[in-house]
Design a protein around this nucleic acid. Structure first.
Length: 590
RNA sequence: GCGCCCUUAGCUCAGUCGGAUAGAGCAACGGAUUUCUAAUCCGUAGGUCGUUGGUUCGAAUCCAACAGGGCGCGCCA
């Protein structure tokens, strides 16, 4: 594990200096001490709030403490200058040699640069996508898939032991309706004379999932079973005869399709957990027993929702979970009137199953329409784990797909939203993934099919890829020296402000990873890469105006090698970030 | 009606779990041509951080109320 976070290192120095200045303070007095880049670069490379956050406990004014701290920090070999500033900050300017010395660290670690230990190898389960196995993936699933996958990668990079999980909702009424729809296609494949309306009339609730995608499933059922699942004349048989095999076959087919789509997106889950299998194994009863043993289950009648009572409201006794004891607004029902579990109850079983596997933390990526569900799930996990295992839920907002300024509409024929596969085929996996990460997950997003493939500065995908391609172009022109070779090169020639700015940005990568992981915000990686690419493009263009700043200087081999080390380090960090996002770096832009 | 999320420059969005004079990009305007790919870069201009109070050394950030937008609200998942 390579940790080379210079901010963490200097923070530790600041804390120990403060501890020496104030030996009577308990260690936790320094918990809120931060060392971070100041907003205004004129203030230096780093700033710490140490003097301010301990001032109260130390009973001394912040400026006085800041002055004393600055004096101590200025004695450090890494520090060129330390000065008290403002209401009690200490600003640090680092020695350029110290900053330059980060490059060999990068070049030694390469893509592993930025790998952190904040996770301490704790096992974390990240559940995402979990689309119902009732049809192909559409763009509505896409954002959650990308955000979840990038978040899982990010947590892995930050030192967690991550399991990528897909929870297959194969137990509910939706799947029953799916089986009925597939059965209709089977009857069609047998050449039934029924009309769709006639068949639909035989199903309570009518025929759902009318999309063409079930036609091949019907054909396959006919190939496998012949006419054995129908009565002569290709008319519907007793569901007891066909329901389970048709359902299982169809769910398998849908999951195969979903896995294909996910593979096209570069998403690969470690485990697929079947809701039906969990229930069959008695996980629901186990969860209920556990909650019951804690006195958290009772029979009762809920109040109607305040203000807006549904038309058909009537008081009803239900099996309820005391979610209110864990911060939820109302207690939540666990059993339907037919005795089977509610979706919530089944999901409790799912979470118990996670806890039984020993995870120290659970993460979910859900669509924003599940926002109202967060509190009760947190309540359940808190109850089942005695508050020991945190559940974090990341909500993703709707993506509106736009082409030529017009929203791309639902396709009626396919009975589904724009297929994910179509989107990938049109703009490419990398553009899809990168673009999905250019917004906070919880912000609405417009996905403009034209802009995403545009090769210009206002397309961040391109902007970052172009920076990497330029790095590679320079390195190729210089004979592609190895990273190990460049890690040993003298770097004193790097002194231009543009070069130093790039080094400073690179040095901020580890703390960016850690902060993004902590906040569960993978989009920060995209923004970092955009900034890093910007620093590089600036430097590149300086060389255009001033030939002495070009990376390759024919008559100065030492300066050239130093700059190649910088270029190689930049490329390595871009690759490191793109790897988190699941985007392939470009060698050239053609 | 209740709960959750959101509101930052004309537009699209950042803002590192309370820090210093709130930042990018696009759009607008003015510049850089014999290159390691000008698909980039430089400069100018642009904001009462939805509104009003509160908490403290200090608030876009935390709290309360209000306005506007989105989502959800007992056996749908």
């Amino acid at each position: 594990m390579i940790t080379q976070d210079i901010f963490a290192a200097l923070r530790a120095s600041a804390v120990s200096a403060m501890a020496e200045l104030l030996p009577d303070l308990p260690p936790d007095a320094f918990a809120r001490v931060q060392m971070e880049p100041p907003r205004d670069p004129a203030h230096g490379d780093m700033a710490t709030n140490a003097a301010m956050v301990v001032a109260k406990a130390a009973r001394q004014p912040p400026p006085k403490l800041a002055a004393a701290l600055a004096e101590r920090l200025s004695a450090l070999p890494e520090v060129a200058e330390a000065a008290p500033a403002g209401p009690g900050f200490v600003n640090l300017r680092l020695r350029e040699g110290f900053l330059r010395a980060q490059l060999p660290v990068v070049l030694t670690a390469c893509e592993a640069y930025g790998d952190g230990s904040a996770g301490a190898d704790r096992r974390v389960d990240v559940e995402y996508v979990s689309a119902n196995p009732t049809g192909p993936m559409h763009v509505g699933h896409c954002r959650g898939a990308v955000v979840g996958d990038a978040l899982a990668n990010l947590l892995t990079k930050a030192g967690y032991a991550v399991t990528k999980e897909y929870y297959v909702n194969d137990a509910g009424a939706q799947v029953q309706a799916l089986a009925q729809a597939a059965y209709w296609r089977y009857l069609q494949a047998l050449g039934t004379t029924m009309t769709e309306a006639e068949y639909a009339a035989t199903i309570p609730g009518g025929l759902q999932y009318g999309g063409d995608y079930l036609v091949p499933v019907g054909e396959a059922l006919r190939e496998r079973h012949g006419d054995a699942l129908a009565v002569p004349g290709a008319r519907p048989a007793d569901p007891a005869l066909w329901h389970d095999p048709v359902r299982d076959f169809t769910v398998d087919a849908m999951m195969a399709s979903i896995r294909d789509d996910l593979a096209a997106l570069g998403v690969r889950h470690d485990v697929f957990v079947s809701e039906r299998a969990l229930i069959a194994e008695g996980e629901l009863e186990k969860a209920e027993a556990r909650l019951s043993a804690r006195g958290l289950i009772y029979r009762g009648v809920l109040e109607p929702p305040k203000g807006k009572t549904p038309e058909d409201w009537e008081p009803r006794e239900q099996t309820l979970f005391r979610a209110t004891q864990f911060g939820d607004e109302v207690d939540r029902p666990l059993r339907k009137s037919d005795g089977t579990g509610t979706y919530f109850a089944n999901d409790i079983a799912n979470h118990l199953h996670k806890l039984e596997r020993g995870f120290a933390g659970l993460v979910h990526v859900w669509g924003a329409d599940h926002g109202g569900y967060v509190k009760r799930m947190k309540a359940a996990v808190s109850a089942l784990s005695d508050g020991k295992v945190p559940l974090d839920v990341v909500l993703t907002q709707i993506v509106r797909v736009v082409k030529n300024g017009e929203p791309v509409r639902m396709s009626k024929r396919a009975g589904t939203y724009v297929a994910l596969r179509d989107l990938i085929d049109e703009v490419g996996r990398d553009a899809v993934r990168f673009t999905m990460l250019t917004r906070k997950a919880d912000a609405q997003m417009e996905f403009d099919l034209d802009k995403v493939v545009e090769q210009s500065r206002d397309n961040p995908v391109f902007y970052v890829q172009y920076a990497h391609a330029r790095c590679r172009s320079v390195l190729r022109a210089a004979g592609d020296p190895s990273a190990a070779e460049l890690a040993a090169v003298p770097l004193d020639a790097l002194a231009d402000p543009g070069e130093m700015a790039l080094i400073r940005r690179i040095a901020a990568w580890p703390r960016t990873v850690e902060a993004a992981a902590e906040a569960r915000e993978p989009h920060r990686i995209a923004f970092f890469l955009h900034d890093l690419a910007g620093d590089f493009h600036i430097l590149w263009n300086k060389g255009r105006e001033d030939a002495t700043l070009r990376f390759i200087q024919g008559d100065e081999p030492e300066a050239t090698r130093a700059r190649l080390a910088l270029v190689a380090a930049t490329a390595a960090v871009i690759r490191s970030g793109l790897a988190v996002m699941g985007v392939a770096p470009a060698e050239e832009m053609r």
